[in-house]
Design a protein around this nucleic acid. Sequence first.
RNA 1: GACCCUUUCAUCUAGUGGCCAAGGAUAUUACGUUUUCAACGUAAAAACAGAGGUUCAAAUCCUUUAGGGGUCGCCA
Length: 463
Amino acid sequence: MSTVTRFAPSPTGYLHIGGLRTALFSWLTAKHNNGKFLLRIEDTDMARNSEEAKDAILKAFEWVGMSHDGEVVYQSKRFDLYKTYIDQLLEEGKAYKCYMSKEELAALREEQMAKKERTRYDGRYRDFTGTPPEGIAPVIRIKAPQEGRISFVDGVKGEFSVDAKEVDDFVIARADGSPTYNFVVAIDDALMGLTDVIRGDDHLYNTPKQIVVYNALGFKIPNFYHVAMINNEQGKKLSKRDGATDVMEYKTMGYLPEALLNFLVRLGWSHGDQEIFSLEEMINLFDPNDINKSSSNYNLDKLLWLNAHYIKNTSNEKLAEMLKDFGVDIAGHDKLEMLLDATKERGKTLVELSNQINLILHAPKAYDEKAVKKAFKGDAKAILTDFIAMLQTWEKPLHLPSDCHAVMEKLVADKEIGFGKIGMPLRVSLLGSMTGAGMDEVMAILGVDETITRIERAVTTIE
RNA sequence: GACCCUUUCAUCUAGUGGCCAAGGAUAUUACGUUUUCAACGUAAAAACAGAGGUUCAAAUCCUUUAGGGGUCGCCA
């Protein structure tokens, strides 16, 4: 039987970084087995759903390049289907109408809390045959087993079992007739042919309930994998205050999808000492049975490192394309290769990279104050002036970084000075700051004319 | 409150009774390289939550305490 996995978000907000990891694990499991990865939108709660949220989730998937197989399934369009199963269970006596009011239920819970018990429905209408109370629209509850244990083997946690007494006759249809979560999830997972359900371990307790549904309907129970949550660096639940939780924010911040996926796959999963995984390697090596039991903390440092790695290893052509989103359009630039070669090791994100490039592309509007103090002193002015003269009279071509380097070398030799004497003032003249790309590269990219223009302008500011 | 899950360097992790006086990666620090900043290279520092057991031998098995997380809806 071929593997089928799924991701099933409810469209109430953006795609969360934790959700993306769970989705990644599911996606990898499907790809590893040449199976299918399905997407289902859990929109049974009409009040909280939004179209925008759904689109945002789909967009995030598109960005990271995790495509789903087949059509997206919307639970909101399947109410008729769920209804037939509710009727079936009612007819077979596996579910029943419960006329307990919300007030009565609340009172019962309070009573149980007071007695320090786990709260649960007491089954008072399970075998009810009398006359139903007036004015109460009943909910439908499923008959859960009353004794024994409900158990299953979780691919991550291992053997998991709860006392049947812990699982009450939960509601499968509300008073208005709409089906509830645990009911529809079980039905959809079964009908969509899921073989492996990978989800957050906040669903661990839902699983016994869903197993009740599987059994009542005679469905085959899939493998379950409950993945521990991602916490913040302090080990607390990840919230907006901890930085970006929306997947698309990472695009804005200049992260590459490969880096983000590589980062996420290593949260709760590993393969020996390996840190860098291409998509292909992940697919080949991933096995949901290897997922770690414990929750992991979210730490941006490693993501930044990975991102730098992927930027360095991305083709210049592709980088140029991506940089368009960051206000840098160099796709047609004749020195594109040189420009990116000179900068891509200096940018950990596309934002930083675009800053590096802009530094070269645009003549400095102002010179960094500290840099001026350090570089434009002593005989800096004279050296720069000599350098201009040298450039103007240079007879060989000055196209390559090595060509430009030769000029500096000559100057250093002639004047019997260190490289720093020319390097530092030159750097400030060309870029306005003490940091940044190598001078040889910058000069080659700018060309002789622009190089001279920038130096001349700088010289006039030195008194 | 009840029930469940979990616990190796600051962080992600390797580790399935002897190969572990615990390995890798990130971050940190130092040094090297460099005209600068990065990148890169070398090195340093850094952990088995605590307490009891079992065993010739325990990070690994058992008990227990503590920390963290989750669940207890006519939400998903």
